[in-house]
């Protein structure tokens, strides 16, 4: 008697839960988003009509959308630059052996473990117009005349959001870079030192290029997490003041769910897709290349 579980069937059976999971949680919403984006569906409406690309044309025409599109890129790029500089510095420092290294590594990893909503609420208080600790210090040290409105002035609000994003991705990037640095044999920077290279040359021409694949992974992760995140903006500013800190995910949520215009919300969120596609492709490339070498 032949077993009903031949290799092919068994493989398919074991893959099935994962496929179902991805189809239900990623595939269906994605297809729904495409469907909604070309329809006039509203929250609580029970019929919908095909409207072609009208939703896309409408959202493109609103200033809020253009700001959100710009912000999504701006916040991602700025915060990732900050993360790169900060994580490199921290990783270099934490590579050295010193007494409290273990404790420091743990403390630096903490923001990564904490839920992003909780962290954002913490920051909301730190940056609050009345209760801000930063303002308290700035006033006491007589560095400012009047307390800055961190979340109330467009430029400061943008800076605050970027900073919180950077704070959130910093631990992960630091740990990844630290792992990369540790994998470099001690001989290599020593050879560079004997060859006459100073700190900067060793860092930029030897160390960083050697850990580039792993830095790329850290940056790609950071891009995805930051680009698709709406929690930070939603909690800190709700996109304000006057939509100046709106990003695509938060605008999609506000328009589609809170505003009830599902079609327009879906159209906005689909603008995330090309960027995520590029990042996913880059990640696969990096993964494949690191297998080859």
């Amino acid at each position: 008697m032949r077993s009903p579980f031949r290799t092919g069937w068994l493989g398919a059976a074991m893959l099935f839960p994962a496929v179902l999971f991805i189809a239900a949680l990623v595939g269906v919403p994605f297809l729904l988003a495409i469907l909604y984006s070309v329809s006039d569906v509203k929250v609580a409406s029970d019929e919908m009509r095909f409207v072609g690309l009208r939703n896309f044309a409408d959202v493109l025409a609103t200033p809020a959308f253009r700001t959100a599109l710009r912000n999504s890129f701006l916040f991602t790029v700025l915060s990732q630059l900050l993360v790169l500089a900060g994580a490199t510095t921290l990783a270099l420092a934490l590579r050295e052996a010193f007494r409290t290294r273990g404790l420091l590594r743990f403390l630096i990893l903490l923001p990564w473990i904490a839920p992003i909503s909780l962290g954002s609420i913490g920051w909301k208080w730190l940056l609050d117009s009345i209760y801000s600790v930063f303002n308290w210090f700035l006033m006491r040290l007589h560095l400012v005349e009047s307390p800055p409105m961190w979340l109330g002035e467009p430029a400061l609000a943008i800076a605050s959001v970027v900073l919180v994003h950077a704070w959130r991705m910093l631990p992960f990037a630091t740990v990844v870079l630290l792992a990369g640095l540790t994998s470099i044999p001690r001989d290599i920077p020593e050879a560079a030192a004997v060859d006459g290279a100073g700190f900067w040359r060793t860092h930029f021409q030897i160390t960083l290029p050697m850990i580039r694949p792993i830095v790329t992974v850290a940056v790609l992760f950071g891009v995805i997490f930051t680009f698709t995140d709406m929690t930070v903006v939603y909690i800190l500013t709700r996109g304000g003041p006057y939509d100046t800190t709106q990003v695509l995910p938060s605008l999609a949520f506000l328009t589609g769910i809170l505003g009830g215009d599902l079609g327009a919300g879906a159209a906005i969120s689909l603008f995330l897709f090309p960027v995520l596609l590029v990042v996913a492709y880059a990640m696969l490339r990096v993964a494949r290349r690191s297998i080859v070498t």
Binding site: P185, D187, I188, E190, A191, A192, I206, M210
Partner: peptide
């Protein structure tokens, strides 16, 4: 160096 420490 013993490992040659070439820059890979």
């Amino acid at each position: 160096f013993q490992s040659y420490a070439l820059y890979p």
